[in-house]
Simulated assay, not measured.
Amino acid sequence: MDAVSTLPFPASVYASRLDRARELASTAGLDGVIVGPGPDLQYLVGVEGDTIERLTALVFGPDREPTIIVPRMELAKVRATAVGELGLAVSDWVDGEDPYALVADALGRAGRVGVSDALPALHVVPLAERLAVRFELATPVLREGRMIKDAQEVAELRRAGEAIDAVHRRVPEWLRAGRTEREVAADIAEAIVSEGHRSVEFVIVGSGPHGADPHHEVSDRVIGDGEIVVVDIGGAVPSGYNSDSTRTYVVGTPSDEAAERTAVLVRAQQAAVDAVRPGATAEQVDAAARTVLAEAGLGDAFLHRTGHGIGVSVHEEPYIAPGNDLVLREGMAFSIEPGIYFAGEWGARIEDIVVVTADGCERLNVAPHSLTAV
């Protein structure tokens, strides 16, 4: 029986992505590109999954038609993606055979070869020995396509944003004094799936002093009355595109200081959103949030960049950070998430995903931004 297609987009979309990648490889002066499992492979041909000890790789170049090298035991799954629908060349192999020789055959003579950043040393080292070339990152080729979202990708990110907003609106059902962070997180994770995601990528519930750790996840800490709680959540919708949104809650009544400081944070987040437009740089958007916080005496409490790109990966380019002079273009999608953190006390963060439009940006998360009392 033929494998059933699992593609979220028409095969023609993937054909265009491959054509664009080959053009970018030519512009970058690369003779060939090797892409292992991960977000780049998912983006280019719809093949999902992680790297294992058996090599799977897409090989292409400016003058080389795409070929995928795949273990025969994975062949049916791969043929159910754009690989099969586009009729791409396939070189399958079984244990005992040399998959690196198949990569060499697909590349032919090559001087400069780029590899995807998700390809591990487990495969990079033997490939380099087999090909007798010095590899370089294929980032200039692979990031360019993924940074600029087309209308279908934006629609999927919008779908993801609506789904995660629905979860945030339900957080007051579960967040209350006397429950543990882990108990609240379990309810949130269940809702992430029930509200339209296929998987839960992460759940952060940082109560009280745990909120001062930007990458705290969950613990068995009991949430207390009057505490500030950071809830940062995200998942992948069926197409594989991700949501990521943070809101800050208070159990009961906040202190005057917490209320005032989180109000400044909301203004800082809005200032950064307002700064997003084609032609602005990533560092200018970051500075817009940072300036508001600094003027309120909270600059030292902001410990990280303002945002990160999002798509088939939760974190990807562009990065909205100090020193990044990347010029924003229509179709770029990224988070705006300034935060303030007070070690041993509490923290707060507000995060939306935005997409750059012709004259500004579209905000994909619209759940209330102010400190929400539960």
Rank of each mutant, 00 (worst) to 15 (best):
Y319A: 10
H308A: 10
Y319F: 13
Q269S: 12
H315S: 12
V266H: 10
E283C: 07
T262L: 09
V285D: 06
E295D: 15
H315K: 11
Q270S: 12
D256V: 11
A287S: 13
R261W: 02
G307Q: 06
H308S: 14
A271Y: 03
L298E: 06
Q270G: 04
A271D: 10
A268T: 08
H315C: 00
R247H: 14
T248I: 08
A294T: 15
Q270R: 15
A289E: 05
A280W: 00
I310C: 08
L293W: 07
D274E: 14
P254C: 08
E316L: 03
R267V: 05
S245H: 12
D325M: 00
V264D: 12
T281R: 13
G299M: 06
F302D: 15
D274W: 04
E295I: 01
A268E: 05
D325V: 04
V273D: 01
G323S: 14
T306C: 15
P322K: 00
V251C: 11
G307T: 05
R267K: 15
L298R: 07
V312G: 13
A321R: 14
G279F: 08
D286A: 08
G297C: 08
P278L: 02
E260A: 15
G252E: 03
L265M: 12
E316C: 04
A271F: 04
H304N: 14
Q270C: 01
E260I: 05
A268C: 11
A294K: 12
G279R: 08
A287L: 09
D244E: 11
E283R: 11
A296P: 10
T262I: 09
A268F: 09
T291I: 08
Y319K: 05
Q269V: 02
A321Y: 00
R290W: 10
A263G: 13
A289L: 06
N324D: 15
S245V: 14
H315L: 14
V273N: 03
E283V: 06
T281F: 04
V250L: 01
A271R: 02
